[in-house]
């Protein structure tokens, strides 16, 4: 019950899974919030030998009622939330602007931006009460550069940067820090699955460092932003991208 608690949204797979493992190695009790129960169980099973207990809660984080229920149950079981990492998100369709339907636009903005807003809102009261806490939100290289056929995704990720800065200013007097991690191309299953081997090699080769990030490398950046090492950092965006974008 004494371990620090980290809540990782989208923690069932990809960068989220690597993040859960990193925090667990560092002695945090990780709580995974994700809509994918099967992947969530698999991530928990990887924690097996770790000293602190992990927990999975299934939720569609675009729905406020499910977010509220999830955080209520975390707080009543654990009594604290030290770190929130908002990783649920991604793009599931690309398309030229005239092909993006309002429903697709809304789906993308809800998945990336609204989940971030709802989950951040849910931890404010307990963090204020504790007088401390950190929140890490997830942007993307596309939030800086924009991306053709990714207008909705790029808009949502740029919005997350502005949201994080606003929240950082709002919560700083309460000792709560808010920062953004901006991954570049990262070799998660979801993203790898969009390309065949040759396309992936060619795409990775365009990065200055000549390869895509490993999910663990993004998790390392998130852990820095979330922990005491970055005590004096708030409202910042850390890009972990092998030089793909240098804003």
């Amino acid at each position: 019950m004494d371990s620090k608690v980290v809540v990782v949204t989208g923690g069932a797979s990809g960068i989220g899974r690597a993040t859960v493992l990193r925090f667990s190695e560092e002695g945090y009790a990780p709580v995974i919030l994700d809509r994918d129960a099967e992947a969530g169980a698999e991530t928990l099973s990887l924690l097996g030998s770790e000293p602190v207990e992990g927990q999975f809660i299934r939720a569609d984080l675009t729905r406020k009622a499910e977010v509220t229920a999830a955080f209520d149950s975390i707080l009543s079981a654990r009594g604290r939330i030290d770190v929130l990492v908002n990783l649920a998100g991604g793009t599931f369709h690309k398309g030229a602007i005239h092909e993006v339907t309002p429903a697709q636009w809304k789906e993308c903005l809800d998945l990336n931006l609204k989940t971030t807003f709802l989950c951040a809102q849910a931890v404010i009261a307990p963090m204020k009460q504790a007088g401390r806490g950190t929140i890490v939100n997830t942007a993307s290289n596309f939030g800086i550069t924009g991306g053709a056929e990714r207008t909705h995704y790029a808009a949502s990720k740029a919005a997350i940067i502005a949201f994080s800065k606003s929240l950082a200013t709002e919560l700083a007097p309460h000792g709560i820090r808010v920062n953004t991690i901006a991954p570049g191309l990262t070799g998660t299953e979801r993203v790898r699955g969009k390309y065949d081997a040759d396309e992936w090699a060619a795409l990775s080769g365009t990065l200055p460092m000549g390869r895509a990030a490993m999910p663990e490398e993004i998790a390392d950046g998130i852990f820095f932003l979330a922990g005491d090492e970055s005590d004096y950092v708030t409202g910042a965006t850390l890009h972990v991208n092998g030089g793909m974008v240098m804003p």
């Binding site: 390392d220 950046g221 850390l238 972990v240 092998g242 240098m246 804003p247």
Partner: peptide
């Protein structure tokens, strides 16, 4: 110093070309 140790460590090996702002939120880049 903590930020410098992070950037020098294995945990930041894929971070390059970046400016890590350590200023208590004074300027949010």
């Amino acid at each position: 110093a903590r930020a410098a140790v992070f950037l020098a460590s294995d945990r930041a090996k894929f971070v390059t070309g970046q400016t890590l702002v350590v200023n208590g939120g004074a300027i949010m880049q």
